[in-house]
Design a protein around this nucleic acid. Structure first.
Lengths: 190, 190
DNA sequence: GCCCGATCCGGATGAGCTATCCGTTTCACC
DNA sequence: GGTGAAACGGATAGCTCATCCGGATCGGGC
């Protein structure tokens, strides 16, 4: 199961497709593969070969942001102070969802299109779990709140911001942080 | 602008379409009008005549639940105790969203397909606003939290529950109430 | 530098879905 | 029971999705 490296032209096309896909996501356009193919001046079949479904392309677009979040979690684990570490990570999680429109659907999807996405998610949730465990161990947080709860709630808070139309980027960020603080005030112990 | 009462056959078909639409929503099937028409044994054109878009049908399906919520808000306003009244209404709002799958998309939609939906929503938010004002006036709640915030957060909490796959109806309800209590703990003052 | 097999490309195309048009039927009123 | 208005519904045109296969491109071997 060793993946053969892509041929040069294939790699170039792959890049262009992902780039175009990212632009589509940023502009809020639906990721229709035929459409993306035309915009990227690439044959439809080539797009479908690289990305069998829109979800596959979406997850590829989302991957860097997921990776960044996982690295943020890694850094947070190095912070000896459990509470700011957890809070900072959660804030980054919301911020990322508000900045990168590819993230919310990837988090919400019941199944992943790419195994690499599943692995990334597992890495992320694993680190997040340890981050939360530290807070639990220090008695900083409601013991009834699980990793799954917080993960879902983060998606929910981002959704609550996204539901509101006509908010500028700055307002969105501020609102997201505010909602997080409200929730954390309810979760915090001691 | 007085609406002529529907002819008998038209009323019967309208009913059957809405009924079928409700079944579709309950079963989680996408509201495709052609599909609904076939399932209801009614001509496609008839369905499109009554409901120009899937959103129109969806809002019609959601209307009773919206109405029920608005009435709940009315009753809550009669309760002299501001905090339980507000909390009870919010709990009902989440419960309703978890029970009736037509509600979340209707709440999230940036624009309504039916003017009746807009009116219903206004009635609902008006009453909710008064409910919240009472809590503010009594100093029971974070003064920085607006009606819009709470409304969005309710959608967000319901979303957080819906994101989790494989939860039974009872667990869904319990989780929703738990999330609401967590948030309210962060919002409450005094 | 050239050749050859493997890999990849991409347009044409059929299958499926959406929404409208218009000839036919049903209804309500007289 | 007759008549005009209102409603019905199937056929169909326009559009999107995803695949197939003939042709082009790449890269290692000579």
């Amino acid at each position: 199961m060793t993946t053969t490296p892509l041929r040069k032209d294939a790699a170039r096309n792959w890049e262009r497709i992902v780039e175009t896909g990212r632009r589509y996501v940023e502009e809020g356009r639906p990721l229709q593969l035929n459409d993306v193919a035309r915009a990227a001046s690439i044959g439809v079949a080539t797009v479908y070969r690289h990305f069998p479904t829109p979800e596959a392309l979406l997850e590829t677009v989302a991957a860097p942001a997921l990776e960044a979040l996982a690295e943020h979690a890694e850094r947070a684990l190095a912070d000896p102070d459990a509470w700011p570490a957890l809070r900072g990570f959660l804030a980054a999680g919301i911020e990322a969802q508000l900045t990168d429109a590819s993230l919310p659907p990837v988090f919400a999807a019941p199944a992943d299109a790419l195994t690499s996405t599943t692995e990334l998610k597992q890495r992320l949730t694993g680190r997040f779990g340890r981050l939360l465990d530290r807070a639990h161990a220090a008695g900083l947080i409601d013991p009834g709140v699980s990793e799954r709860d917080l993960m879902s709630l983060m998606c929910g808070l981002a959704y609550a911001v996204n539901v509101q139309p006509g908010l500028g980027a700055a307002e969105r960020g501020a609102t997201g942080r505010r909602y997080l603080d409200l929730l954390l005030a309810g979760l915090r112990r001691s």
